[in-house]
Amino acid sequence: MRWRKSTYSSGGDGDTCVEIAALPTRVAIRDSKAPTRATLSFPTPAFTALVDHLKAGDPAPPLG
């Protein structure tokens, strides 16, 4: 997988952020401070909807 960090990554070495990797039908997410630990993955449309929602400045959608 090809991982990339957010442009909003902060800190001296940029390790206080999440990283994402685009897969054929999903987006994988991992903690940049612990890249060898478990990852999460979401269907691409769900991840895109979440990012769009956050960019709009709306609070996070309810879970469930």
Rank of each mutant, 00 (worst) to 15 (best):
M1E: 06
M1L: 11
M1I: 06
R2D: 13
R2F: 01
R2A: 12
W3T: 03
W3V: 05
W3F: 05
W3D: 00
R4Q: 14
K5D: 06
S6V: 11
S6A: 15
S6W: 11
T7D: 04
T7E: 09
T7H: 12
Y8H: 12
Y8W: 05
Y8T: 00
S9D: 05
G11I: 09
G11S: 14
G11D: 13
G11T: 09
G11R: 07
G11L: 11
G12W: 03
G12S: 15
D13L: 06
D13C: 06
D13W: 03
D13T: 09
G14E: 08
G14W: 01
D15W: 01
D15M: 08
C17F: 02
C17N: 01
V18K: 07
E19T: 08
A21L: 07
A22R: 02
A22I: 07
A22L: 12
L23V: 05
L23I: 07
L23C: 13
L23M: 15
P24Q: 14
P24H: 15
T25N: 14
T25S: 15
T25Y: 12
R26C: 02
V27Q: 02
V27Y: 05
V27R: 03
A28S: 12
R30H: 13
R30S: 07
D31W: 02
D31I: 03
S32F: 05
S32A: 15
K33L: 11
A34Q: 13
A34V: 10
A34I: 07
A34Y: 06
P35L: 05
P35H: 04
P35V: 01
T36Q: 12
R37T: 08
A38E: 13
T39G: 02
T39S: 11
L40P: 07
L40W: 11
S41Q: 11
S41A: 11
S41F: 01
F42D: 00
F42R: 00
F42N: 00
F42E: 00
F42L: 06
P43V: 03
T44Y: 03
T44P: 00
P45K: 04
P45S: 01
P45M: 03
A46K: 02
A46C: 02
A46T: 09
F47P: 01
F47M: 10
T48M: 06
A49I: 05
A49Y: 09
L50E: 01
L50N: 00
V51M: 13
V51G: 13
D52R: 15
H53A: 13
L54H: 13
K55H: 09
K55W: 01
K55N: 10
A56L: 10
A56N: 07
G57L: 06
G57Y: 03
D58L: 15
D58Q: 15
P59T: 05
P59S: 10
A60L: 14
A60Q: 06
P62M: 01
P62R: 06
L63C: 08
L63N: 07
L63K: 05
G64L: 10
G64A: 10
G64K: 03
G64F: 03
